[in-house]
Amino acid sequence: MLGPRESSLWHMISAPTIWALHFCVVYGWTASVCARGPDPAAARLGIGIATAVALLGIAVVGWRAWRQWDYLDDYDYEHDGPSVEDRREFLGHAGWLLAIVSAIGVIFVGMPALFIETCL
C-alpha cells in the first residue's frame, strides 16, 4: 500500500503520522470520556494504552528505517548522489530521525495523564 520501501516517501513519514494519530486519539478520547463521565481513571487508562501502542508502532518504524539506512554497514551519512542506494539510505536516515522526534512528541503529549488527576 505504501509503495516500495527504497523509494517511497510514505515509509519515511509513517512515524510522524503515528504521532499525529496519537494526538487526535488522546484529545478526542479525553474530551469524550470527560464530557460523558467524567471518569479520569478511564481517560488515563485510554491515554496510557494509546501511548504504549503509538510508541510500539514508532519503535517498529524506527527500527526498519535504521535498517534501511544501514549506517553500521558503511558509516555513510551523506546521501547526495543520484543513485538508488543514496535514495534508499536518505529515506531510511530521515525516517530514523523522524521516528526519534515522533517518539519524544508522543511521550510529551501523553505525559500530562501521569500527573493530572481530574477531568476539569
Binding site: 510529551f108 505525559m111 500530562p112 500527573f115 493530572i116 488527576e117 481530574t118
Partner: peptide, 9 residues
C-alpha cells in the same frame, strides 16, 4: 514539563 505538570493537581 514534568515540573510544571506536577504542580497542576
Amino acid at each position: 514539563l514534568s515540573f510544571a505538570l506536577s504542580e497542576m493537581p
